[in-house]
């Protein structure tokens, strides 16, 4: 399967996770890794499945590298019908009022443009002590398996 991995990050943790996920999936799939800041909404049309990794920042805002992508979604209002995406959030439950808000806002924005969310949006908690890749890899494999059958 052709899988495009995108990340939205402030401190680089989502970028590292994107690299790890790409390495792990690379044997069985074609993968690419891109920063959302360099991504046009239409680029989501290319791959069979888009996997988006996105943190939150500030007061539950989108991270800096996802903001330009979200702005382009807003400005261009593209029809993303047929685009399939899964989204994984990176959050910190010390800030629980806004935990995982960044990935939620981005998912809502894509769904409003007609894109289809595959699987569930989950959010890793940086304060939990668990490693994000230990959560993201099984999550991604489940989604890939489900989308084969779908």
């Amino acid at each position: 399967m052709n899988i495009a991995i995108f990340y939205g990050t402030e401190t680089g943790n989502a970028e590292m996770l994107a690299d790890d996920l790409s390495t792990a999936l690379d044997e069985a799939h074609e993968t690419s890794v891109s920063n959302l800041s360099d991504t046009a909404p239409d680029a989501l049309r290319t791959a069979d499945l888009n996997i988006i990794l996105c943190s939150s920042y500030g007061d539950g805002d989108l991270p800096a590298s996802a903001q330009p992508f979200a702005d382009r979604l807003e400005a261009q209002s593209p029809d993303l019908g047929g685009v399939r995406f899964a989204i994984f959030g990176l959050g910190d439950r010390e800030y629980h009022a806004t935990f995982g808000s960044g990935s939620m806002k981005l998912a809502d924005s894509l769904i409003r443009r007609g894109a289809t969310l595959i699987g569930e949006r989950v959010v890793h908690d940086a304060a939990s002590g668990d490693l994000p890749e230990d959560m993201a890899l099984p999550w991604a494999e489940d989604i890939i398996a489900a989308s084969h059958h779908g």
Partner: peptide
């Protein structure tokens, strides 16, 4: 000391 989530960037630096 109670913002361990913020300290998680050290995993990037390890690499």
């Amino acid at each position: 000391a109670d913002h361990q989530g913020t300290k998680a960037v050290s995993r990037q630096f390890d690499r």
